[in-house]
C-alpha cells in the first residue's frame, strides 16, 4: 500500500502537468488567444478561419471543433510544433521547432485551440 502512495507521489512530481493541466485557467487561454492572433507570432488568421477573426486566409482548414478533430492533445501540439513531421510537404511553419513560439506559447495556443 505504502508503495502505491510513493509511486503516485513520484508520478505527480515527475509529471505534474499530466494531472494538473487538464483544465487550463482563463489566463492561459487568454495568452493562447493573444499569441494566436499576434501577426508576429502565431498569425493563425493568415491561413485559417478562426472564430472572432476577420478576413481569414484559406491555406489551411478552419480552426473549429479542435477537441473533436484532435482528441489526443499531444497530436495537436506536435502539429503546431512541427507540422512537417507528419507531412514533409506541409506549408505550415514549424512554430516550436523553428523557435517562432516558445514552449510555453505553444502550450498556450494548444489550450486556446481546445477552447475553440
Amino acid at each position: 500500500m505504502m508503495h502505491i502512495y510513493m509511486i503516485a507521489a513520484a508520478v505527480f512530481f515527475l509529471f505534474p502537468s499530466s494531472l494538473v493541466a487538464d483544465e487550463p485557467g482563463e489566463e492561459q487561454i487568454e495568452l493562447g488567444r493573444k499569441v494566436s492572433f499576434d501577426s508576429m507570432k502565431g498569425n493563425c488568421l493568415a491561413c485559417h478561419m478562426m472564430p472572432g477573426g476577420e478576413q481569414p486566409g484559406n491555406f489551411g482548414p478552419p480552426l473549429i471543433q479542435m477537441k473533436a478533430r484532435f482528441p489526443e492533445r499531444s497530436v495537436l501540439r506536435r502539429q503546431i510544433w512541427d507540422a512537417t513531421e507528419k507531412n514533409p510537404k506541409s506549408i505550415m511553419p514549424p512554430f516550436g521547432k523553428h523557435g517562432i513560439l516558445s514552449e510555453e506559447e505553444v502550450d498556450a495556443v494548444v489550450d486556446y485551440m481546445y477552447a475553440l
Binding site: 488568421l45 493568415a46 491561413c47 478576413q55 481569414p56 486566409g57 484559406n58 491555406f59 512537417t84 510537404k89 506549408i91 511553419p93 514549424p94 523553428h98 523557435g99 517562432i100
Partner: peptide
Amino acid sequence: GQLNMSCAGCHMRYSGRRLRSE
C-alpha cells in the same frame, strides 16, 4: 527561413488561395 517556406509552396501549390485577404 524561419517560416520554412519555398517559392513553390505559395506560388504553385497555394496559388489562387488567400493569405489573409491577399
